[in-house]
C-alpha cells in the first residue's frame, strides 16, 4: 500500500455518532405513523387474507405437522406424488367436463331463445296476415254492384 493510501485510510477512519445514536433512531421510529411500521412476518393467518391465501396457509401448516409426525420414506413420497398427480389429472378432467356441460347448457338455452323468437315472429306475421285478409274481405263485400255493372 502506498503512503498516499495509508494517509487516506488514516483520514477516512470511522467515527462514532455517539452513544445515544441508537436511542435517537428508536425515538424517531416510535414517532412514525402506524402505516410506516414494518410488516410482520405472516406467522398467523392475516385477518384480511384472501381465501386462497388462507387455503395455502392451511396446507402449509398441515404439511408441516404431517411431515413432523411421519417419517417420509422414498416409497411413501412416490405414492404421495402419484396420488397428487392423479388428483390433478382427475381435477383437470372434471373441470373440462364441467365446462363442456356448461357450454351445452348455454347452447340449449340459446336454441330455446331462438325458437321462442321464431314463434313470436310467426305469431306476429299470422296476426298481420289475418288483418290483411279481413280488410280484403271487407273491401270485396262493400263493392258488389260495381262488379255486377262491369259484367
Amino acid at each position: 500500500m502506498s503512503r498516499m493510501e495509508e494517509e487516506l485510510k488514516q483520514a477516512l477512519r470511522r467515527e462514532d455518532p455517539g452513544p445515544d445514536f441508537a436511542d435517537r433512531v428508536l425515538a424517531r421510529i416510535a414517532a412514525l405513523p402506524a402505516a410506516a411500521a414494518p410488516e410482520a412476518a405472516p406467522e398467523t393467518v392475516p385477518q384480511k387474507a384472501d381465501w386462497w391465501q388462507k387455503l395455502l396457509l392451511f396446507f402449509q401448516s398441515f404439511g408441516q405437522s404431517f411431515g413432523q409426525s411421519l417419517s417420509l420414506t422414498p416409497q411413501l413420497k412416490l405414492a404421495m406424488a402419484g396420488a397428487l398427480a392423479c388428483a390433478v389429472l382427475v381435477s383437470a378432467v372434471g373441470i373440462q367436463r364441467y365446462r363442456a356441460h356448461e357450454r351445452a347448457l348455454a347452447e340449449a338455452a340459446e336454441g330455446q331463445k331462438a325458437k321462442e323468437q321464431v314463434m313470436l315472429a310467426m305469431r306476429i306475421a299470422s296476426a298481420k296476415l289475418n288483418v290483411a285478409q279481413k280488410k280484403v274481405r271487407e273491401t270485396s263485400d262493400r263493392q258488389p254492384g260495381d262488379n255486377a255493372s262491369e259484367r
Binding site: E15, D16, F21, A22, V25, L26, A40, A41
Partner: peptide, 22 residues
C-alpha cells in the same frame, strides 16, 4: 429484530452506526 424486538434492533444499529454515520 425481525420478530419486532426493539432491543435487538438497537443492537443492530449500535453494531453498524459508525459505518453508516462515517
Amino acid at each position: 429484530a425481525k420478530k419486532g424486538d426493539q432491543a435487538a434492533f438497537a443492537e443492530l444499529v449500535r453494531a453498524h452506526q459508525s459505518m453508516v454515520f462515517s
